[in-house]
Amino acid sequence: MPDQNTHLIRVVNRDQSFKCASDQVLLIAMERMCANVINVGCRGGGCGVCKIRILQGEYECKRMSKAHISDAEQQQGFVLACRVFPRTDLEIEADHYQPRESYYTNRDARKAAC
């Protein structure tokens, strides 16, 4: 029998999916499944790194920084995955955060990572 409280989250642009309980936020559920389909930042609705767009399905959302999700964007389904509780199965699109490249990251982090 399917579990009414667990929902399938399909990440369409990554061609992957993970399960999320209705009392969990998407980002934490994803991390607990050891999946790597949404980028992880502060996990508190502040930094914008986990910005996604929900294409289909119902959800509830805690407060998010308006610096990253304006009212208009929220109307269009943009959310921060660390603040979203699924109410049905969801289809989402990851990778909507536009990182502002820091000098530091560009020139040195990438070099150091090689």
């Binding site: 930094c47 790194v49 920084s65 820091s102 990251t105 040195d108 982090a109 150091a112």
Partner: peptide
Amino acid sequence: RVLNERFLTVLT
């Protein structure tokens, strides 16, 4: 001795 992307880029 390795950078962590999150530490460098996650800001409020």
